[in-house]
């Protein structure tokens, strides 16, 4: 009991002692005279963003009938990524930037019709998924009157992705009624380095974009018909 009383006495004393001349507000406006260089529409700016894109099935003349082929399920085949962006303002309307991201993408392969890629087994579900790390650069053209605000812009750029992990995943119903889920590394199918060009239209933090993969998705040596490289989606920037 005595110990408790001593503890309480010390606590109360400490609480009272802490109430000296406590500063509630302290400002140094003189420091504000330095014109900032960091801001949404200032010299430099960094912000994070998330993105969601959907692969778009398009028929191309590049398909060779004799080579393995698969269609993917539009809508389900998509990717999400999170990244950071650095923007350097060059003039009132022009800026350049660098960005980096981590992405997770999945091509869900259609199981009906002719499907020979990566093999001709028909599964309940089959997808090729990958985690990638990417770097990109862009040129931004801004327009519209604005203050320290990103506002409206058009970006044109390129980006490259290195595959960190890729998986060939499939599910099958077995004769005994159970379901089998299998996955194994599919890195052997993929080109490790992939690159694309993109165009974006943004209104401040909301952005829509289209991307086109210039590189092959599958390694040349497999002689697969490549998956279409077009995608489109939206992006949300984390800034004011």
């Amino acid at each position: 009991m005595k110990k408790h009383l001593i503890f309480i006495a010390f606590a109360v004393f400490g609480w009272v002692a802490s109430y000296g001349q406590q500063v509630q507000l302290h400002e140094r406006p003189v420091a504000d005279t330095i014109r900032p260089e960091f801001g949404p529409n200032l010299k430099k700016y960094i912000h994070a963003f998330i993105e969601c894109g959907f692969f778009i099935p398009v028929e191309t003349s590049e398909v060779v009938d004799s080579l393995p082929f698969a269609d993917f399920v539009a809508g389900r085949s998509n990717y999400v990524l999170a990244g950071g962006r650095f923007k350097l303002k060059l003039s009132k309307w022009n800026a350049i930037g660098l960005e980096t991201h981590l992405a997770y993408s999945s091509y869900y392969l259609k199981q009906e019709g002719v499907k020979t890629l990566p093999d001709n087994f028909v599964h309940n579900t089959e997808r090729l998924s990958s985690f990638t790390f990417g770097l990109g650069s862009f040129h931004r053209i801004s327009y519209g009157r604005k203050g320290n605000y990103i506002g409206k812009f058009i970006d044109l750029g390129v980006e490259g992705d290195v595959t960190i992990l890729s998986v060939h995943y499939f599910e099958d119903d077995l004769v005994n009624g159970s379901r089998r889920k299998m996955w194994y590394s599919s890195k052997k199918f993929h080109e490790v380095l992939q690159y694309d060009v993109f165009a974006r239209f943004g209104f401040n933090r909301y952005v829509i974009f289209a991307k086109y993969r210039l590189s092959k998705f599958f390694r040349e040596k497999h002689h697969f018909n490549d998956l279409p490289g077009l995608s489109a989606g939206f992006q949300v920037g984390f800034h004011q």
Binding site: Y19, G20, Q21, Q22, V23, Q24, L25, H26, E27, R28, P29, V30
Partner: peptide, 13 residues
């Protein structure tokens, strides 16, 4: 103004 403060006054310190 170069700098300003608002403080509590709880004792004569």
């Amino acid at each position: 103004i170069e700098e300003y403060w608002v403080t509590t006054v709880n004792k004569t310190s």
